[in-house]
Simulated scan of single mutants.
Amino acid sequence: MFPSSWKYRRRVDRVVCASLPAPSRGGVAVKAIGMCEFGGPEVLQLMDLPEPHAGAGEVRIRVHAAAVSPTDVLLRTGGHAVRMPGRRPPFVPGMDVAGVIDQVGPQLDGRLSVGQRVVAMPLFTGPRGGGYAEHVVVSAESVVAAPAGVDFAAASTLLMNAMTARIALDALESQPGDSVAVTGAAGAVGGYAVELAKADGLVVIADASSVDTELVRGFGADHVVQRGNDVAARIRELVPGGVPGLVDGSVQTTEITPALADGGTLVELQGWSGPVERDITVRPIMVAPGGITDTVGLDRLARQAEDGVLSLRVAEVLPAAQAHRAHRMLEAGGVRGRLVLDFS
């Protein structure tokens, strides 16, 4: 919690802090990247925040790496404000971290211990804030052992996107041998969706630009079609009756529905829910809150990364103080793999 003396004021569409909290006398300051107002990348700043401590059912992680994702950008621009009623700034982004546990709270089952290398999904809309910090406190349910043999930067890129892909595929309720299409297959979620679908025994049709075709084939896609506005027609050329399920990683919504068979299922990643015709079912999905507390599912993904089923892709590692630059790069597009902030 922040001191009651924290002064703030609200204006339309943004929140402005009058000052940052200082650690209590004798307390320890923790470096974090956060913001006092919603806006462009320039609102991200280096902050000294009070040291957090693990409570019941929680662990504290000394963060070495935090991945940067589109949902972090959405927080920065105010898109998650509706999910944080009554929350005061600073707002700290970050839903993917890798590091070492340095404190455990009571009421744990012994699965996690001090000194353990872990990956975790902090819920940045919660009172603890997100993962852009030297130390984060996370519910033990959202923490699993890091993939063996993987450095912190690569490990930090796994959980949120892979769990999103897992939830998306589960929503299709496909059976081995079924066909599934994936758009945005060169992206972080799309790439994991292709790899997980192949691990599930599905026949995968994926889209890619000419420069990404071999990358997507490397994920295991059975067929790769040219990405673009006519991708639905290209999928229909391969499957004249349409595919029974499609994960829309490129958020093409109505443009992609012709690729689906009558009565098929379309999974959307950014909340779109229709309308659609031909008895097509649209299932908007998101990883929070259920996915981030699915300990068994998170651990399975970590082990699949460890076994090489999932490819961990780091686009670039930047110093934490350059979070604003990472956000600009992400918004500019064209990033392949994840941008990672180094807190080591």
Rank of each mutant, 00 (worst) to 15 (best):
V114N: 06
G39E: 10
Q107I: 07
A259L: 08
G218C: 09
K31S: 15
P70A: 04
V282K: 04
C17H: 06
Q175F: 03
L202M: 11
A133I: 08
P275Q: 10
A320N: 07
G333L: 07
G27K: 01
P258W: 02
V97W: 09
V251N: 15
I280S: 04
M84P: 10
S210T: 13
Q322W: 00
T254C: 07
G187C: 05
E195H: 01
T293H: 11
S210I: 03
A32V: 09
G86Y: 11
P240K: 05
M35D: 04
V73F: 06
L172E: 00
L238C: 11
S19M: 13
G291W: 05
S139F: 01
R325W: 00
D102L: 09
A65I: 01
A66L: 07
V119K: 00
G291A: 15
A65D: 09
V314T: 13
V63L: 08
A120Q: 09
I33L: 10
Q107S: 15
R338A: 12
L20A: 15
D307G: 01
E255D: 14
D307M: 01
V204W: 03
E306R: 01
A133T: 05
F38A: 15
V92Q: 04
P85L: 04
L260Q: 04
H53T: 07
V144K: 08
P50Y: 01
P289M: 02
